[in-house]
Design a protein around this nucleic acid. Sequence first.
DNA 1: TTGAAAGCGCTAACAA
DNA 2: TTGTTAGCGCTTTCAA
Lengths: 333, 333
Amino acid sequence: MRDVAQLAGVGIKTVSRVVNGEPNVAAGTTERVRRAAAELHYEPDMHAGNLRRADGRSHTIGLLVSSVANPFAAHVHRAIERVAAERDYAVFATSLEEDPAAERRAIAALSRRRVDGYVVTPVQDDQSYLRVHLDRGTPLVCIDREPAGIDVDSVVTSNYDGARDAVRHLVAHGHRRIAFLGDLERILTARHRRAGYLDELASAGIAPDPALVVLDLHDDASATAVTRHLLALPNPPTAIFSSQNLVTLGAIRALQQLGLEYDIALVGFDDVEAGDLVKPRVSAIAQDPDRVGRLAAERVFARIDGDVSPARRIVVPTQLVVRGSGEIPCPGA
Amino acid sequence: MRDVAQLAGVGIKTVSRVVNGEPNVAAGTTERVRRAAAELHYEPDMHAGNLRRADGRSHTIGLLVSSVANPFAAHVHRAIERVAAERDYAVFATSLEEDPAAERRAIAALSRRRVDGYVVTPVQDDQSYLRVHLDRGTPLVCIDREPAGIDVDSVVTSNYDGARDAVRHLVAHGHRRIAFLGDLERILTARHRRAGYLDELASAGIAPDPALVVLDLHDDASATAVTRHLLALPNPPTAIFSSQNLVTLGAIRALQQLGLEYDIALVGFDDVEAGDLVKPRVSAIAQDPDRVGRLAAERVFARIDGDVSPARRIVVPTQLVVRGSGEIPCPGA
DNA sequence: TTGAAAGCGCTAACAA
DNA sequence: TTGTTAGCGCTTTCAA
């Protein structure tokens, strides 16, 4: 910057004015400074500026998700980025892979980089350690899962209601023996989905068979194995509700291996890509990652802009996508 | 930091020493400083430190991809992140959506934030404008597509050879009328895949039928429409080579709509999730995003570490995944 | 309309 | 082992 000032024959402050588009600079001066800056390939250093700048904004936010390679998280990320781009904000993305320690590490790393806000998929059981950051004025919005121990905005999918919708749909097609393939119990949303499954069964007057409830599935290989095992039971299920993307794929694989894909009903939570190309086409409880991301970004920027209204809890509804696999009727019914 | 120093009853430099783990601090002093820092919830400001620090490293890299929501890019991103995490580097991710202007904007935004390196999927025809950044010592590695106008490391998929493999495979099953569903011609890799298709046809002594070569497809709806049109031709293709993920899905949809999925052979470039659940199972030329990302990250960090060896061009081979759809024989042959 | 001086939070260089 | 001084690149404040 000093070099630019020297080349343009002006003071350093005038360069600052031109670069930041501040008023009260003569047109000719502006032009000379611009030319000098271009000639020297000058790029302002945002961080140096922020050190002294009144608002101290880094124009950067941090995003913590399960994995940037997870399709749901990736679409949330894209939606957040769109909102951020409009405001010239850059986005740090970090994958936590359900590791509680990674959550704290990531927050610390971003805090040292002075991000203006966080969008976080909580992994730890308790987020009260974040209060320090909130007190410092850095806003945080939780997505996908509710925070515990702090009172902040959150944008979550209606996991409980979505699960009930799935079970109700299967019951409506005559099923009473509905298996549940659940994700890791330490994930809050997985517990919500299980609760929805159980409560809807109860509403329908169906006593859950513990043999049909399998928890802590997280990948498709284990889902395939478990599904095969369930269907080999003396009294097998007539329908399956799988609580997650990869688990759904694993269940379908098992059904195909056994040649039962047209006999056993299946509804998956979270839509699968190419779900309409598999035979039978896959019925699902679809989430809306685009909306989750957009709303979360809007909340965090509202807070950055000084919104101090009470924490908001936004629920994004799921939608039952009827395609075929979920409408297979119960044989005996 | 001054507050911490005061509370601990030491000088400001001693706090700096403790925070950065520098030697020559008495154990007792270290302990006092640590306690004071914890009490005040002190978090060092990396940017302030970098301003004066000798190496000036921001411990941050920038990643530019087509879209963070694209599965290929998302897996590349995850792989880069893994390497970055080992070195306590944070990653900025930006989606370009094939917009050349977005490429320049993103580079400028990251440059102002003083990233230590870039991993870029080039969108513009010419990257020579980046020379300024390279001269300044900030390394850049291109992925997926080769750079033009600058001599930098690149990690690319063997698009040309992969396309030839696909066509050779179809020819080996007796096909001579092989349609090509190409992506946007302004994308370099799309042109490489088209070239591979044409050259392999030529090697097999097959004159390409212009009616079977459709370019500039980018989503599945248009791919579905085009596929339906091709199969309604008086002299339709007996096999299809689709050059991209979404296009492959669109082609499958059309085949299913027409009830021809077991009659027309299909090989797609880039594997599709659930490709083994669709009937017939989808044969594909699989890319290796994990390897692309890891190698790109290793290159950029090697450069950051001072590697000044000549620019390297790394080709990650594709793999033909044989599943069924690509092995449907040609009826007349 | 312009520029000089001070200082943001930190580290380098050097002295004690 | 510790602290002091200067200065990183910039913006603020205030005077010209």
